[in-house]
């Protein structure tokens, strides 16, 4: 009978991604409720050394697939090997990260296994031994409690929501066979973003600007605040559609749905589609001249004033606080 929790770890360029540790810790919590094992799938080239770290975060057993064909990530090869490891070991629950790679891979693997998948979950629990996965829908305008009526039960977890906590287990390595056939897709080039900024979906702090920034040059003060808070700058749809900021910066129902610890909305009125994309942030600050702006209904702290005066002052204050 299907037993235990398996995570599909994600690594890039010789290091585990943070979501992998979040997966390990969450899997550990679930497995401890039924006294079961946590296992992990770890694929790539030269990745065996990362198994120990997974062990530190609660993984009992790591299935390592080491092959040059698995680096960089290509969907079909990873899906083939991941699905085989799952089939061979029959876990009750499989957890992926809801990162770009995890979403791409989890759906393909779930289809291979003819099972269901709950994407981008913000909570997972067991009810009578069965997984109940809570996930935002309509970008967070409502939530669904999803159950999977097939085996294994597969879910992907939203990055930055589940805590990563150390809980040392063996992390014993088992090598798996990674005979992958010829691939129809080939990665030609990886072009790195050299700005050094964390992606919005993984940022702890986001400083976002909307129409109130008045133009692309207005974002300079947001960049400065973000720099001090080690955050990333985001934008509303209005700002992106006006061409002030690149598309990858858009927060909202037709952009990125984010859950940082701190979200600072500057000059954003708070269209419903924007509110949907950021309302699961832990702490929300709104800075806007218009006291009637809908953004204030979601804000933990509101500042009704000219953002061009408040933001530089706030940057100076924060500089002292974090020093």
């Amino acid at each position: 009978m299907a037993k235990g929790v398996m995570i599909v770890a994600e690594q890039r360029e010789g290091a585990l991604r943070k979501i992998s540790l979040e997966l390990a810790s969450t899997a550990r919590k679930l497995a401890d409720q039924t006294g079961d094992e946590v296992s992990a799938v770890l694929l790539g080239s030269g990745v065996e050394g990362m198994a120990a770290e997974l062990g530190k975060y609660g993984v009992d057993k790591v299935f390592v697939g080491d092959n040059a064909a698995l680096e960089p990530y290509v969907t079909e090869a990873h899906a083939e090997v991941t699905a085989k490891v799952i089939k061979d070991n029959d876990p009750a629950i499989v957890l992926f990260g809801a990162s770009v790679q995890g979403k791409d891979l989890s759906a393909r693997v779930a289809a291979k296994l003819a099972t269901g998948l709950a994407t981008d979950c913000t909570d997972v629990k067991l009810d009578g031994g069965k997984l109940v996965a809570t996930r935002p829908m309509y970008a967070g305008k409502c939530f669904g409690e999803v159950v999977i009526n097939a085996a294994p039960q597969v879910a992907s977890l939203r990055p930055n929501v589940f805590p990563a906590a150390e809980n040392a287990k063996a992390g014993a390595v088992t090598k798996v066979d990674v005979a992958v056939g010829e691939q129809k897709s080939k990665v030609l080039e990886v072009q790195k973003d050299t700005s050094g900024k964390v992606d919005l979906t993984e940022a702890n702090v986001i400083v976002s600007g909307g129409r109130g920034m008045k133009g692309p040059e207005g974002y300079a003060i947001l960049e400065e605040l973000a720099e001090v808070l080690k955050g990333t700058v985001g934008a509303s749809r209005a700002a992106v559609d006006a061409g002030w900021r690149p598309q990858k910066d858009q927060v909202g129902q037709t952009g990125k749905v984010v859950s940082p610890n701190l979200y600072v909305a500057c000059g954003i009125s708070g269209a419903i589609q924007h509110l949907a994309g950021m309302s699961s942030s832990k702490c929300i600050v709104a800075i806007n001249k218009d006291a009637e702006a809908p953004i204030f209904t979601k804000a933990d702290y509101g500042v009704v004033d000219d953002l061009f005066k408040v933001v530089p002052e706030l940057t100076a204050v924060c500089k002292k606080l974090v020093a």
Binding site: K141, G144, E145, D300, Y301, D306, K309
Partner: peptide
């Protein structure tokens, strides 16, 4: 037959009411 079922749809968790930050100037 759906493999994944939304067993229950729920409204988003309510946020506690926020504070307006006071001060004489920016």
């Amino acid at each position: 037959d759906a493999k994944a079922k939304v067993a229950k749809t729920i409204p988003p968790p309510a946020r506690p009411p926020g504070k307006i930050v006071c001060g004489d100037d920016p």
